[in-house]
Structures are given as C-alpha cells and as structure tokens.
C-alpha cells in the first residue's frame, strides 16, 4: 500500500509515526526526537535503493521501540503481581500436552 505513495509522503508519514512514538519514550534524557530529526536530515537527498534502506531502518526502529514499550509494561506487571512464578511457568506446557493426548 505504502509503496505506491511518493517517497516524500512516505517519509513524512514515517516521521509523524516515529515522532508520536518518541513522545512516550521512557528515558527523558534520551534525545529521541533530536536523533530522529538528524537521521531524517541525513537522508534527505536519498534516492532509490538508498531511500529504501532508510525506510527499512525507520520501520525497524518503529517496531523495536514498540516492542520495548510493551515489554516494559509486561515486565512491570509481572514483577508487581506475579512474583512467585516458578510453579506456574513449569505447568504451562503440560496442559497443552495433556489436551494433545486426548
């Protein structure tokens, strides 16, 4: 879908998405928006294959940042509410095995 968009619009779209994701970045001393802007400025004349590579990197950073956020939340909840994990973790696959036998 996004492949049909002109490169300029694709870049703007990706920038907007990354900018919004950056607002939620947990570490306030990490200059997410500054790094984002500089990365886009560096690639502003990129064409063809170079532009594609930059887009792939952007998408990758987007994915990784989102994964970081969801993992952070998951870990926080796990630490707060599931401190005695030993029994549960070992019993998770057993039910799958049991139901497979039936």
């Amino acid at each position: 879908m996004s492949n049909k968009l002109p490169t300029r619009l694709r870049a703007i779209k990706l920038y907007k998405e990354l900018y919004r994701i950056g607002k939620d970045y947990p570490n306030p001393s990490y200059d997410f928006h500054g790094k984002l802007r500089r990365a886009f400025e560096k690639n502003r004349t990129a064409q063809g294959e170079g532009a594609e590579r930059a887009f792939r990197l952007g998408e990758y950073i987007k994915q990784e940042t989102l994964a970081l956020y969801s993992l952070r939340k998951y870990r926080h909840l796990k630490n707060a509410y599931y401190s005695d994990e030993g029994v549960k973790a070992s019993s998770v696959p057993t039910l799958e095995k049991e139901s497979g036998k039936e």
């Binding site: 907007k16 919004r20 994701i21 969801s70 909840l77 509410y81």
Partner: peptide, 12 residues
Amino acid sequence: DLRLNEPRYTSL
C-alpha cells in the same frame, strides 16, 4: 489475565 495477549499500540 496478563498473558492473554499483548495490547497493540494505536496507530495515527
């Protein structure tokens, strides 16, 4: 419970 799924991040 916590392990039901991983909530999505809303897109613009």
